[in-house]
Design a protein around this nucleic acid. Structure first.
Length: 549
RNA sequence: GACCCUAUCAUCUAACGGUUAGGAUACGGCCCUCUCAAGGCCGGUACACGGGUUCAAAUCCCGUUAGGGUCGCCA
């Protein structure tokens, strides 16, 4: 290409490639350090799969003395959403994941700035210009309509679609033809002049997939778009991950097919390609019983914010994802119940390399139960409060005005680790699990069917008469038995089971009457503990069923 | 259609040529018990199919089938 054409192609003043290279100093990192990144598109939300990928990349870097950075891939201006970077950063921060470099909540950090691709336009253009000058790339004047038509024809003939071989019409335009097109003001994109041969194969060693054999890439893909002069993903990946010295590229396996292109690009530049790690995609079971990838449109949990909104403990989400990455996580957790998830030594070579896992909410819930069981009542209180302040302000007020009482409530049957109650595992459930402590529930006698109403009222009143809040748990239960016996209920289950007909019910029915009167429900945590927290006056008010039905 | 990835209980998976195929979740039963949780004990359920290689195959090779992915001037 002549200098005249190059100037028409790239009319703006551009830095030289040599100038750019000197601005990006070599990273001074220990041997074996991993530099990884998360490179989201700012579309306004963070997909669970991207989060999974970012978490994996972050673990990899931080477990290997490295750097984890965040780069914004906003080369598709149409999809760009204002404030989207903050959405991503906040979502990460919620889980304690903070990029060391790139776009962060503290602004842009690092020596390899800018970390937003739209601000790097000149850099890509400088490299593209060099490739065109070398004859390794060329301007293409084909319109979208023409390309679409070719694709249709190829498709109809059962051929591979794409701009390759003799379909690459602009590949061999003469300088004069190019010049004529440019002077006519025809729009153009810059395409790679591919050196690949589809009949040959390339073998790439992927960190997760192992050796992958693929056909060489012979399509002349666009590297610079016509509309705005910004690079396509492939070209931006090449330039950025080279300049930013990314050692490990963690991404979804949907990229596996373009791996030969990326290798070709690195080879073309004479650069060392990064180590690739293509992970399987998270999936979901669709209505039709088939697997599909988790979809933004169909699955609310596709958005990582879903878990914060519903009050899932952060560690539960992290542990669940870690469990998908390394199945040995569960064993490790069993042996190390108290340490941080970030201390788990994730083994990159043990990352499961199977078909994409089905996202399992039930398993997540189960992990959440274990995570919450390990917390103290104070921790639960703090977490619930933090959640409520954001999502349920009224409830947050209740929590703040009753700190000690709430901690006592969260402490009911809170044992050590596995022995704890496990009904509360996401903070959104906390309100309905605690509401009867703050307001006298309606008394619904139907809950006590078939016990006669007269007996219900009598039992409650008689119990109230002998109730003493300073009783021990044993004394408390002895009194329930006493009332049972005095009213024709069996005082122990064996006697009742032996001859149910001679009793109105058993001691458990008596307890049930008290439970319904006090909590408004037939099921609750330990009634003794509940009564201790409610206090004498409130308990007596609730037991006075004469006034309540 | 072409190319690629993957294939072990319902789900997530372990196994890296020799195991009664292990664990976790879910499910069922029993125990405990003031109900519910929790906990303890027990239980059922899996190597997709067909060929090879080997003394020996879930494991290696080939094929079939199935699921997923890619084939955009989206990433």
């Amino acid at each position: 290409m002549t200098p005249e054409i190059l100037d028409l192609l790239f009319p703006n003043e551009l830095p030289t490639v040599a100038e750019i290279e000197t601005k990006y100093p070599s990273r001074e990192l220990p041997e074996g350090a991993v530099v990884s990144r998360l490179a989201p598109s700012p579309t306004g939300y963070l997909h669970i799969g991207n989060f999974y990928q970012g978490f994996m990349a972050e673990r990899l870097a931080h477990q290997h003395n490295g750097v984890f950075f965040l780069r914004v891939e906003d080369t598709d201006q149409a999809r760009k959403v204002e404030g989207a970077v903050e959405v991503v950063l906040n979502a990460l921060a919620h889980y304690g994941i903070r990029p060391d470099e790139g776009r962060t909540l503290d602004g842009e950090i690092g020596d390899y700035a800018p970390y937003t691709q739209s601000e790097r336009k000149e850099i890509y253009q400088a490299y593209a210009k060099e490739l065109v000058a070398k004859g390794a790339a060329y301007p293409c004047f084909c319109t979208t309509e023409e390309i679409d038509l070719v694709r249709k024809i190829q498709s109809k003939q059962g051929l591979r679609t794409g701009y390759y071989g003799h379909y690459a019409k602009c590949r061999n335009l003469t300088d004069d033809e190019v010049l004529a097109n440019l002077k006519a003001g025809k729009p153009f994109c810059i395409r790679l002049k591919s050196t690949g041969d589809y009949s040959k194969r390339i073998v790439v060693d992927d960190l997760l997939k192992g050796k992958v054999s693929l056909p060489e890439y012979d399509v002349d893909v666009p590297i610079i778009k016509g509309a705005d002069g910004l690079p396509t993903y492939h070209f931006a990946h090449l330039i950025d991950d080279h300049l930013m010295q990314t050692t490990h590229v963690v991404r979804g396996e949907e990229w596996l097919s373009s791996l030969p292109l990326h290798i070709q690009l690195f080879n073309l530049m004479g650069w060392q390609p990064p180590q690739y790690a293509h992970h399987a995609l998270l999936q979901k079971l669709g209505e039709d019983g088939k697997r599909r990838k988790i979809s933004k449109r169909l699955d609310p949990e596709a958005n990582i914010e879903y878990f914060a909104e519903h009050g899932y403990p952060q560690d539960a989400v992290l542990e669940y994802l870690l469990n998908l990455m390394n199945a040995s996580f569960e064993d490790w957790r069993k042996e190390n119940p108290t340490v941080s998830v970030f201390d788990f030594p994730m083994d990159i070579h043990k990352i499961s390399n199977t078909a994409g896992a089905l996202f399992d909410m039930v398993k997540l819930n189960s992990i959440a139960r274990e995570v919450v069981a390990r917390m103290t009542a104070e921790e639960v209180y703090d977490k619930v409060l933090t959640w409520a302040k954001e999502y349920k302000p009224d409830f947050a007020n209740v929590l703040e005005n009753n700190r000690e009482k709430c901690i006592s409530i969260f402490n009911i049957e809170r044992g050590i680790g596995t022995k704890s109650r496990k009904d509360l595992f996401k903070w959104e459930d906390a309100e309905k699990e605690t509401e009867f402590f703050f307001q006298t529930p309606a008394f619904d006698e139907k809950l006590l069917d078939p016990i006669a109403k007269d007996d219900v009222v009598k039992v409650a009143l008689e119990y109230a008469a002998i109730y003493n809040p300073s009783d021990s748990k044993e004394e408390w239960f002895a009194k329930i038995k006493e009332i049972a016996g005095a009213n024709g209920f069996a005082t122990d289950m064996k006697a009742y089971k032996a001859d149910p007909k001679s009793f109105k019910g058993s001691v458990s029915d008596v307890a049930k009457i008290l439970r319904v009167a006090i909590t408004g429900r037939t099921q609750s945590p330990d009634l003794y503990a509940i009564m201790q927290i409610l206090g004498k006056d409130e308990v007596l008010t609730r037991l006075n069923l004469n006034d309540r039905c």
